Amino acid sequence: MKKINTNAFLFDGKGKFSIKKTDTKVKDYYENKEDYEVSLSEMQKKMDDLQDKMFAHNRYGLLVVFQAPDAAGKDGTLKAVFSGVNPQGMRFYSFKKPTDTELEHDFLWRTNMQLPERGTITVFNRSYYEEVLVVKVHPEILLNSQKLPTENTSDLEKVWKHRYEDISNLEKYLFRNGIPTIKFFLNVSKAEQAERLIERIEDPTKNWKFQVQDVKEREFWNDYQNAYEEAINATASESCPWYVIPADDKKNMRLIVAQIIIEHLEKFNMNYPKSDAIRQKELKNLISVINEQELS
């Protein structure tokens, strides 16, 4: 596998992000299917080792957020990248349309309930960013369903500005508590999305993935592109960066995502807990106890 320069996909607030200038496809990092499978397997093993140390160290947590248009490959990427990582230290949450109970709370409540525990990696398949993406493209959701006081929704631009600030403050708060956030935007082209949606219709085994609403939402493609661009520019920071991943080739996308997560885990100052001399003596004495049990 060719070396992946993950900085090529990094947006940390130091420069302006333009979605039109961002690639949806790059040259392959793998030579062939076998090279891809071997490389991904090695990454899975490395990630599992790092997560195991993270779980034992029990000081850090990691929040990994995935956002993308429909059919960009989120589900398949999560399955491929995290396969083989010990589920004891993994949490996955998929956020869909808010329930009536969730709508009775502030917009961050339902995701705050699922934030990472120390020692774990928590993955959000969609997240609080839906509140400045879907809701921004369809402001009637905000006005008709979210039960905000009317004086709080009189200026929609101010609503989005405040939500960007609230999201950024949450991520800064988590970072300061040893729980950084990595955010992935899977950047698929409109043409590739069309092919994948048609495939879901033509393949009976994929019909269950297809939603009529997916086609209706394509009519708002440009609105969503603008919403992603604004959200990334408003919330990217050095401590909580965005990574914009070319998503037209699923294998490339998965390798890039896996490499980025590994690099962030490697930044943690982690060690397996060490036992003191008294504990070591106690443990060694137990060896003789175990041996005696075998003889009895």
Rank of each mutant, 00 (worst) to 15 (best):
K3D: 12
I4S: 04
I4F: 05
F11E: 01
D12F: 09
F17C: 03
I19V: 10
D28C: 11
Y36D: 02
S39D: 11
S39H: 04
L40S: 01
E42P: 00
M47G: 13
D49H: 12
L50G: 06
K53F: 03
A56N: 09
L63N: 03
V64I: 15
P69W: 08
G73S: 07
T77E: 05
K79T: 12
F82W: 07
S83A: 15
S83D: 15
V85C: 10
F92M: 14
F95K: 01
F95Y: 13
K97Q: 08
E102S: 00
R110F: 05
P116W: 00
G119I: 01
T122G: 02
R126P: 02
Y128M: 08
E130N: 13
K136V: 06
P139L: 07
T150F: 05
T153W: 03
S154T: 15
D155S: 08
L156M: 14
E157M: 06
K158H: 12
Y164C: 07
Y164V: 07
D166S: 12
I167Q: 04
N169P: 03
N169I: 00
L170W: 04
E171C: 04
K172L: 12
Y173S: 11
Y173M: 13
G178A: 01
V188Q: 03
R196Y: 11
E199W: 05
E199Q: 13
N207A: 09
D214W: 04
K216P: 00
E217V: 03
E219Y: 13
Y228M: 06
A231V: 11
N233D: 05
S237K: 05
S239K: 11
S239R: 06
I245P: 04
D248R: 03
K251D: 11
V257W: 02
A258P: 02
Q259R: 15
I261Q: 03
N269H: 10
Y272S: 06
P273I: 07
K274W: 00
A277N: 12
I278N: 13
R279N: 13
Q280L: 15
N285P: 05
E294V: 11
